[in-house]
Amino acid sequence: MTGVRILVDADACPVKDEVYKVAWRRAVPVTIVSNSHLRIPAHPLITRIVVGDGFDAADDWIAAAADAQAVVITADILLADRCLKAGATVLAPTGKPFTTASIGSAIATRAIMADLRAGGDQVGGPKPFAAADRSRFLQALDTALVRLTR
């Protein structure tokens, strides 16, 4: 793939509608990648890829397509790491950017939380998705696209 584009890890993504709006305004193609058939708008900029049910099949597809011209939308820390290594810009649905400087601590925190859960500890999950997250995401995606299209 070439040119600026948005790749969305879509199965549990709460900001797909926001991605479409920004993509249409900026005329940037979007690829929605999921393990199951998701409804998408009928629009020439939006493409749907349904991968198999294999473990990490969507992640593998996205990581293989990621490069310096891609903005990847995912909450998956390990996928974010793979995409950063490929040169992509990576945003969480909350608008928080994953960076090469921050990904190491995010992976470490993920591992610690997994160990606590495996040990039977009750640990809270992520904060509920809020309107402020949606707003922050819109701003972060727009900023990323402006930077890449310069």
Score class of each variant (00 low, 15 high):
Y20D: 04
Y20M: 01
K21S: 09
K21D: 10
K21P: 06
V22L: 08
V22Y: 03
V22K: 05
V22T: 13
A23G: 05
A23R: 02
A23L: 03
W24H: 08
W24N: 07
W24G: 13
W24R: 15
R25E: 14
R25I: 02
R26N: 09
R26W: 11
A27E: 12
A27V: 11
V28R: 07
V28E: 03
P29A: 02
V30D: 07
V30R: 01
V30C: 04
V30L: 04
V30E: 02
T31V: 15
T31N: 00
T31E: 15
T31K: 08
T31M: 11
T31Q: 13
T31I: 10
I32F: 03
I32P: 05
I32Q: 02
V33I: 14
V33E: 09
S34V: 11
S34G: 13
N35Q: 14
N35V: 09
N35T: 13
N35E: 09
N35I: 05
S36W: 12
S36D: 10
H37Y: 15
H37I: 13
H37C: 09
H37D: 10
L38D: 06
R39M: 11
R39T: 14
I40M: 06
I40W: 00
P41S: 02
P41D: 00
P41G: 04
P41C: 05
A42W: 05
A42Y: 08
A42N: 14
A42Q: 15
A42K: 15
H43V: 06
P44S: 11
P44R: 15
L45K: 07
L45D: 02
L45H: 01
L45P: 04
I46R: 01
I46L: 05
I46S: 03
I46T: 07
I46C: 04
T47P: 04
T47R: 15
R48E: 11
R48T: 07
R48C: 08
R48S: 15
I49F: 02
I49C: 07
I49M: 12
I49D: 00
I49E: 13
V50Y: 09
V51I: 01
V51G: 03
V51L: 07
G52W: 06
G52A: 04
D53L: 13
D53A: 12
G54C: 08
G54K: 13
G54N: 12
G54L: 11
F55A: 15
F55S: 14
F55M: 08
F55Y: 08
D56Q: 14
D56P: 05
A57N: 09
A58Y: 00
A58G: 03
A58R: 04
D59K: 00
D59W: 06
D59Q: 05
D60K: 07
D60M: 11
W61T: 04
W61P: 01
I62D: 00
I62L: 09
I62H: 05
A63P: 01
A63H: 05
A64C: 01
A64E: 12
A64P: 06
A65E: 13
A65G: 01
A66R: 05
A66E: 07
D67C: 08
D67L: 06
D67S: 09
D67W: 06
A68P: 08
A68C: 12
A68T: 13
A68M: 09
A68S: 14
Q69E: 14
Q69W: 09
Q69L: 06
A70V: 00
A70R: 04
